[in-house]
Amino acid sequence: MARCLARARFIIGAWVVLLALAIALPASAQRNPDGSVNPTASAVKEQQLLDALQSGGSISGRVSIPDQKSANLIHPAGRDWRQFHEVTLRWIGAIAVLGMLIILVAFYLIRGQVKLESGYSGRRIVRFNAFERFVHWMTATCFIILALSGLNITFGKPLLMPLLGEGAFAAWAQWAKYAHNYLSFPFAIGVFCVLLMWIGGNIPNKVDVEWLKRGGGIVGHDHPPAYRFNAGQKMIYWIVVIGGTAVAISGYLLMFPFYATGIEGMQLAQTVHAIIAVLFVAAMLGHIYIGTIGMEGAFEAMGEGTVDVNWAKEHHALWLEQEMARTGPNESQRQPMATPAE
């Protein structure tokens, strides 16, 4: 009996010692050296995890793979970023792109095509040389593919995946992403060439103020004079140069993850990239509209390289004067309509 009591005392005593040790363990054992909560600690308390999340801190553990960033179990900023790209960005993109499409359709129905009021003269003048058109089309075709593949990243899952099915959408999205990554290089080169090629004609001046005051000849039937590029074209130029540079830089930060920035920088780069890109798409829809169905004779400038002299007189009178002064009226007007400047 006495031996049984002694054994019981020993067992109870051992449990008391173990319990005392567990209580006495310092709180630092549940924290990483950097102060964040370690969820793999043996006695982490739920309240500690909640407190860490409330204060914006991260919850990290330990991993054995080379990428130590994967030890981060929960990072509250990631929730804000997910909310942005799953909800906020879709609203911004939908409003920008659909809003612009609605405006353009309404404008076309109300105003109609801007006609060449004096009609075709049959005499042509070179508007863009072959290299300028080459750079424009290289940048433009890349932009269209970049825009479609980029919009697929934002809108593909809710809009396309239900139509295509998961397997087909995955294959399409993968190839779209390859195209997005690789075509960014000729696009960036194109934007750089555009910057150098046309900066001389795109510095804002007083003529632009007058052009804007008179509605640019698009609202109403006025024909305010302009040099080679009017205020509207200058806006497009600077949108392409500044917007293109911004999407290129933010895009390359995403393409080379964690080379130049941490996770917060990556999230910021994605946010900047996405917002500028959808606004860029909306602006380019306006550019495509006015360069095609919006204005009679406009597409020929970039399609063939030449425009009708009457078109130049109506929309770029000051530029026409400069060209005629430079080359002489016979030189600049000699090209017949059927001879594109290839």
Partner: peptide
């Protein structure tokens, strides 16, 4: 002709960039 040439140039630059990227990453 200029448009087609621009498309070809874009594909060529993209292909070279693709090989370069795959070599780096």
């Amino acid at each position: 002709k200029t448009f087609l040439l621009a498309c070809v140039a874009a594909v060529v630059i993209a292909t070279v960039a693709g090989f370069a990227l795959n070599a780096v990453q």
